[in-house]
Design a protein around this nucleic acid. Structure first.
Length: 945
RNA sequence: GCCCGGAUGGUGAAAUGGUAGACACGAAGGACUUAAAAUCCUUUGGCCAGAAAUGGCCGUGCGGGUUCGAUUCCCGCUCCGGGCACCA
């Protein structure tokens, strides 16, 4: 029978769908296994061959686990909110919901083609009210929570309010925006509005006046991970720093837990490292410096407490409130001018120019260790948002301080033996401390670091600082709170209304608060976000309904929030929703959560390392704290599939002509390389006629050939329409079938590695599948499977394969498994093996890779059940054993002859046989035997002297 | 600047201390065929010797080391990719 993949695949696609064979339900009799691929944003361009790479890898694993007897949850959905649909809406007036729906339909068609084992009954879409109800719900829970450092988790904000009314801020140890101090009496005397303002300082979802990344080009603020090199990731528009009132998530409260959790999960080292960098923990000390001649003092943060004797100036961030307090009247004009100048420098200038700028405040700080007076400067190289916004500068041992000292002629005092600071600073944390204090100088309580190593000195100083009450040991994190507002239309609306300028949550029972219709997707003329265009967008607290904006009276009808949530909101807990996607009463029911728990295998791109993968870890930890998720970490094992790059082809046109030169001859002419559609090229040889038909301007193109062919050049580039190098899965499937596509994508190389899509290799995989198919049929095309006992060779082949594939599965080393399949099928073909026992095993082993073909074969073999539920074969080492093994005998490392040794013989037997060989004496003549090393089943190494 | 990866034929790649280059693509030659497609077979890291069977030498980015034996482990470089970056 011919292997007609088109017919077979169409038939099984229908049967799988009609039979709902991939739907799963909770089943306490079987262990669960949760395989998840990152859900896609459905873009208008559809899938190219790179997108399904990770999905295929995950699908193979899911199918394998199912054959292994696990109850496998393998869902799929769509991250449907996003900027492209909205940009398209602005340009064309098409509602984003309409284009999103169209794109999803197209994605679904393409995904179905490839034969995934998704349980579509659990599909989620982030833009559907039934889904985003729970995104809004989680936001409200965060609003109602604060983070208690003592108990290490989120707590209801009401507890905090109670505590304030009892004891004010005394003994408070919580995550907060700024440190406040008030008594119970003061708290109780506050108005409701004042209390609300205070609580905002502690909520996990809070409205904060912060410096944000404002992108005028997109008309919205962006999170740090959405900005690269001062430009927006989407669109590449310049981004500037602006102070704005925004919703923020206090993710920084979870810094240490996010860091600690990394040690408990099975992720690649590189992505864990990226997250560690992003969180940026640094241990150091906070120290108090008094200002000479006043009662003022301020605090700095340093990781190099040991360099206290080398401090020659202090620096404040321009945005720091200290600047106003410390500037002397004489310097105020200069400082004002400087602050004005800094304000007009954009983030991009600040980074690109790296110009050293600054101004003296006129004040002097006092070094608490030496009593020395140190000038206090202002400079924009100190950031307001990190530490205390103020530093002690040690130019000898910090390159930034060094540059500043050189520019403004400030002294440089080296503190490490042998450090040469005449050209540059010595930043390394190594060497022996000297000059601390300098000979003949006094220091507080006779404190001295001289003779200690830098690491010892840091510890000693920190201890001293705490003992003397000069400051405290402190850990700082670089991780900033996530800015959670976007001035966009196509996102989750905030379930928030404003009364007297303060935000209030709409009642939980009224969720979801649905996204209103607007007539324009652009910001309003007054600069409000697009939701300002919505007519029906006010909250009536009497009826608890959304009403017309014209009814706002600020008595019972209040304005609703105009921002929407960012892209990561909807993707932060979708894995939980899949567990119980149709549940109305909870994000996930406790029963479903208790059964499915966490994602056992998560497959997706590493580009989400500092975005989605941090946010959803935070989100899950919060949900864990409030008892919704039973685990601390949502993704046990993470595999980052590599990117599939495009492989572009070029033709070389002689400048000013319509003549094209073959790649090998291009050096002889002055040529321009031009991208050519990869569909016109086979094995880098151009189809001349197709090229002439491609574009009118090439209709009468001339060619300079080599060996009668036109050879194209090639390069590995991003897969993109403009480079004509996009390979589309539908085309591959039409020509070779989905099973071949699946197999080939996995055969291309290790799953984690980036690699170019090379159309050339695909024939090998197609050939392999045809050969495998042909094992089951005779020349006449009739099924040729017998019940005869298989030969020992055939058993050996199939058991060897079983062992190899079973081992590779856990590592997802699919490319080497496929090689093993090819060898095994070759062997079975040569042996003319038609044994049912052997071939059935082969079908099961191959079914995760080529599910369509294997379903068909399994049925042809007469099974009533599907191959999806067949048990995974086991292997028997007995079949893999050799009777004898051929071992190489080498003398001093050079192989001289071989011997046959019984497979189960001990090492001594191999040694005896090796030395007993007739040639042995010849090689050993005149030499002394040092030792004999027997490598089991491989080699006998005889060492001579 | 700091931190992670990586480097093996013409190409994608195997081998994680034991016969380097499995498997596949490409290429060359051959069989079948009127022809093409398809299929099948042989060769295919480099150099040297030989009519041939075959034999020898070199070879996993570079330089050292450990070991009977290193693509694999250790030390030092070079180049490529990625992350973080006035984070004190």
């Amino acid at each position: 029978m011919e292997y007609n993949f088109t017919e077979i695949e169409a038939r099984w696609r229908k049967r799988w769908a009609d039979g709902k064979v991939y739907e799963v339900s909770q089943d306490d009799s079987r262990p669960k296994f949760y395989v998840l691929s990152m859900f896609p944003y459905p873009s208008g361009a559809g899938l190219h061959v790179g997108h399904p790479l990770g999905y295929i890898a995950a699908d193979i694993y899911a199918r394998y686990k199912r054959n292994r007897g696990f109850n496998v949850l393998h869902p799929m959905g769509y991250d449907a909110y996003g900027l492209p649909a909205e940009q398209y809406a602005i340009q064309t007036g098409q509602h984003p919901a309409v284009t999103t729906e169209q794109n999803i339909r197209r994605y679904r068609e393409q995904l179905d083609q490839i034969g995934f084992s998704f349980d579509w009954s659990r599909e989620v879409r982030t833009c559907e009210p039934g889904y985003y109800k729970w995104t809004q719900w989680a936001f409200q829970r965060m609003f109602d929570s604060f983070y208690c450092n003592k108990c290490g988790k989120a707590q209801p904000i009401s507890k905090l309010a109670d505590s304030f009314s009892q004891q004010g801020t005394a003994g408070l140890d919580v995550a907060q925006t700024e440190e406040l101090n008030f008594s119970a009496e003061e708290w109780n005397a506050m108005t409701e509005k004042q209390q609300q303002e205070v609580l905002m300082n502690y909520r996990l979802a809070y409205l904060g006046e912060t410096m944000v990344n404002w992108c005028a080009g997109l008309g919205t603020v962006l999170a740090n991970d959405e900005v690269v090199d001062g430009l927006s990731v989407r669109g590449g528009f310049p981004v500037e720093q602006r102070k704005m009132k925004q919703w923020c998530l206090r993710i920084s409260a979870y810094s240490q837990r996010l860091l600690d959790g990394l040690d408990t999960i099975d992720w690649s080292e590189s992505i864990k490292e990226t997250q560690r960098n992003w969180i940026g923990r640094s241990e150091g000390a906070e120290m108090q410096f008094k200002i000479k001649g006043t009662d003022e003092a301020f605090t700095i943060f340093t990781t190099r407490a040991d360099t206290i004797f080398g401090v020659t100036f202090m620096v404040l961030a321009p945005e720091s409130e200290l600047v106003g307090r410390l500037t002397t009247p004489a310097q105020s004009e200069a400082v004002e001018a400087y602050l004005e100048e800094v304000k007009h420098r954009t983030e991009l200038d600040r980074m690109a120019g790296k110009k050293v700028t600054g101004v003296f405040t006129g004040s002097y700080a006092v070094n608490p260790f030496t009593g020395e007076e140190i000038p206090v400067w202002v400079s924009d190289y100190v950031l307001a948002g990190y530490g205390t916004g103020a530093i002690m500068a040690v130019p000898a041992h910090d390159s930034r301080d060094y540059a500043f000292a050189r520019k403004f002629g400030l002294p440089i005092v080296p503190l490490i033996e042998g450090a040469d600071v005449s050209e540059e600073s010595f930043d390394a944390k190594e060497g022996i401390v000297t000059n601390s204090p300098a000979a003949g100088k006094e220091s507080l309580a006779g404190f001295s670091l001289n003779g200690l190593s830098v690491k010892e000195a840091i510890e000693a100083t920190k201890r001293f600082v705490e003992e003397q009450g000069l400051g405290r040991v402190k850990v700082n994190y670089r991780l900033r709170d996530a800015i959670f507002s976007r001035q966009r239309y196509w996102g989750e609306p905030f379930p928030v209304y404003y009364k007297d300028g303060m935000p209030y949550m709409i009642p939980e029972a009224c969720l979801p608060l649905q996204l209103p219709e607007v007539d324009k997707f652009l910001p309003t003329e007054t600069g409000e976000p697009p939701l300002g265009n919505a007519k029906v967008w006010a909250w009536d607290t009497r009826s608890n309904t959304v009403v017309d904006r014209s009814l706002i009276d600020n008595v019972a009808v209040f304005p609703l929030e105009l921002s929407t949530m960012p892209g990561f909101a909807g993707s932060s807990a979708y894995y939980l929703r899949y567990m119980d996607a149709r549940c109305d009463s909870a994000l996930v029911s406790p029963e479903a959560d208790a059964y499915w728990r966490d994602v056992d295998l998560y497959v997706g791109g590493s580009e989400h390392a500092t975005g989605h993968l941090i946010y959803s870890r935070y989100w899950n930890k919060f949900l864990h704290d409030i008892g919704v998720s039973c685990v601390e970490e949502p993704f046990k094992k993470l595999v980052n599939q590599g990117m599939i790059q495009g492989r572009s082809n070029f033709v070389y046109r002689i400048k000013g002509t319509n003549t094209f030169v073959s790649e090998g001859l291009k050096e002889q002419y002055d040529v321009t390389p031009i991208h050519v559609d990869i569909n016109l090229v086979q094995n880098d040889v151009l189809d001349l006629e197709a090229f002439r038909r491609w574009r009118p301007e090439y209709a009468d193109a001339e060619f300079v050939l080599e060996d009668g062919k036109y050879v194209c050049g090639w390069a590995v580039e991003k897969m993109s329409k403009s480079m004509f190098n996009v390979a589309n899965p539908d085309q591959v499937i039409a020509r070779y079938g989905a099973d071949t596509l699946r197999l080939y994508e996995m055969f291309l190389g290790p799953i984690t590695q980036s690699k170019p899509w090379d159309q050339n290799g695909i024939d090998g995989c197609a050939r392999f599948l045809r050969r495998a198919w042909n094992l089951f049929f005779d020349k006449q095309g009739a099924l040729a499977v017998t019940d005869e006992a298989p030969s020992r060779d055939a058993l050996k082949s199939i058991h060897k394969l079983t062992k190899k594939v079973s081992g590779d599965m856990e590592e997802m080393a699919y490319n080497t498994s496929i090689a093993a399949f090819m060898i095994c099928v070759g062997e079975l073909a040569q042996q003319k093996c038609h044994s049912r026992e052997v071939l059935e095993r082969l079908v099961v082993l191959l079914s995760p890779f080529a599910p369509f073909m294997c379903c068909e074969l399994w049925q042809l073999l007469g099974h009533a059940t599907l191959v999806l539920d067949a048990p995974w074969p086991t292997w028997d080492e007995a079949y893999l054993k050799e009777d004898t093994v051929t071992m190489a005998v080498s003398f001093s490392g050079k192989t001289r002859y071989t011997i046959d040794v019984p497979a189960d013989a001990p090492a001594e037997e191999a040694e005896r046989l090796a030395l007993g060989h007739e040639a042995a004496a010849r090689y050993m003549e005149g030499k002394q035997l040092v030792k004999v090393i027997v490598v089991p089943k491989r080699i006998v190494n005889i060492v001579l002297k």
